[in-house]
Amino acid sequence: MKLRTTSLALLTVALVALVALVAAGCSSDAEPAAAPATEPAKESITTEAPRTEGSVDGPTIQIEGFAFSALDPVAPGTEIVVANLDGAQHTLTADDGSFNSGGLDAGSTITITAPDVPGAYPFVCNIHPSMIGSLAVDG
């Protein structure tokens, strides 16, 4: 019985250590991956000072729980607020390079401008590649 109790204790310690390692990897302060080779249009990104909660107006993509919120289709040239509500840094980077937030610190916002050409614009977080979404631009 003593051997079984010792084995169970060792298994519990190993499991706790594994969970701690996984959590540490998800909250890394590592620098974001390099931006795509395609540079976004000069007017496609406007950085802003962080906003206080409740002060975001207009179309908004929220980053929370390591996921992007959905956004209804927008008109070409629409300004879209990207609000990082997570405790980790993220990016919102179009697959085709048409917009790129760069590293967006926890609790901050940035405004991107929707592309001028209607279509679907898939995007990803370059830091956490499992985070994906798509921006629909209607004509």
Score class of each variant (00 low, 15 high):
residue 19 V to K: 07
residue 19 V to H: 08
residue 20 A to P: 11
residue 20 A to K: 08
residue 22 V to E: 12
residue 23 A to S: 13
residue 23 A to T: 14
residue 24 A to M: 13
residue 25 G to I: 00
residue 26 C to Y: 14
residue 27 S to K: 15
residue 27 S to G: 15
residue 28 S to K: 06
residue 28 S to T: 15
residue 28 S to Y: 05
residue 28 S to N: 11
residue 28 S to P: 05
residue 29 D to E: 14
residue 29 D to P: 13
residue 29 D to Y: 12
residue 31 E to K: 13
residue 32 P to T: 07
residue 32 P to V: 13
residue 32 P to E: 06
residue 33 A to S: 13
residue 34 A to R: 08
residue 35 A to V: 03
residue 36 P to K: 07
residue 36 P to Y: 09
residue 36 P to I: 05
residue 37 A to V: 14
residue 38 T to R: 12
residue 40 P to W: 04
residue 42 K to C: 04
residue 42 K to H: 09
residue 43 E to A: 15
residue 43 E to G: 15
residue 43 E to M: 08
residue 44 S to Y: 13
residue 45 I to S: 04
residue 46 T to H: 10
residue 47 T to R: 15
residue 48 E to M: 12
residue 48 E to I: 15
residue 51 R to V: 13
residue 51 R to Q: 13
residue 52 T to L: 11
residue 52 T to P: 03
residue 52 T to E: 14
residue 53 E to R: 12
residue 54 G to D: 02
residue 55 S to W: 07
residue 55 S to P: 05
residue 55 S to E: 15
residue 55 S to L: 12
residue 55 S to Y: 08
residue 56 V to Y: 10
residue 56 V to G: 08
residue 56 V to L: 14
residue 57 D to G: 03
residue 57 D to W: 07
residue 58 G to P: 10
residue 58 G to L: 09
residue 59 P to F: 12
residue 59 P to N: 09
residue 60 T to A: 15
residue 62 Q to G: 10
residue 64 E to I: 12
residue 64 E to H: 11
residue 69 S to Q: 10
residue 69 S to N: 11
residue 70 A to Q: 14
residue 70 A to H: 12
residue 70 A to Y: 11
residue 70 A to E: 15
residue 71 L to F: 12
residue 71 L to P: 07
residue 73 P to K: 08
residue 73 P to Y: 10
residue 74 V to C: 10
residue 75 A to D: 14
residue 75 A to I: 03
residue 75 A to C: 03
residue 76 P to E: 09
residue 77 G to K: 07
residue 78 T to I: 09
residue 78 T to L: 09
residue 78 T to S: 14
residue 79 E to G: 12
residue 82 V to P: 03
residue 82 V to G: 05
residue 84 N to V: 06
residue 84 N to M: 06
residue 84 N to T: 06
residue 85 L to M: 09
residue 86 D to T: 08
residue 86 D to E: 09
residue 86 D to R: 04
residue 86 D to W: 09
residue 88 A to P: 02
residue 88 A to F: 11
residue 89 Q to T: 15
residue 89 Q to I: 13
residue 89 Q to A: 14
residue 90 H to D: 07
residue 90 H to F: 08
residue 90 H to I: 05
residue 90 H to C: 06
residue 91 T to P: 04
residue 91 T to N: 03
residue 91 T to D: 05
residue 91 T to F: 06
residue 91 T to W: 05
residue 92 L to M: 14
residue 92 L to D: 01
residue 93 T to H: 00
residue 93 T to K: 00
residue 94 A to L: 04
residue 94 A to Y: 05
residue 96 D to R: 01
residue 96 D to Y: 03
residue 101 S to L: 01
residue 102 G to N: 08
residue 103 G to E: 10
residue 104 L to N: 06
residue 107 G to Q: 02
residue 107 G to A: 04
residue 107 G to T: 05
residue 108 S to G: 02
residue 111 T to L: 04
residue 111 T to E: 07
residue 112 I to D: 00
residue 112 I to A: 00
residue 112 I to S: 00
residue 113 T to M: 06
residue 114 A to T: 08
residue 114 A to Y: 08
residue 115 P to I: 00
residue 115 P to A: 01
residue 117 V to M: 04
residue 120 A to Y: 01
residue 121 Y to F: 05
residue 121 Y to A: 00
residue 122 P to A: 00
residue 124 V to H: 05
residue 124 V to C: 02
residue 124 V to A: 06
residue 125 C to F: 01
residue 125 C to W: 01
residue 129 P to A: 01
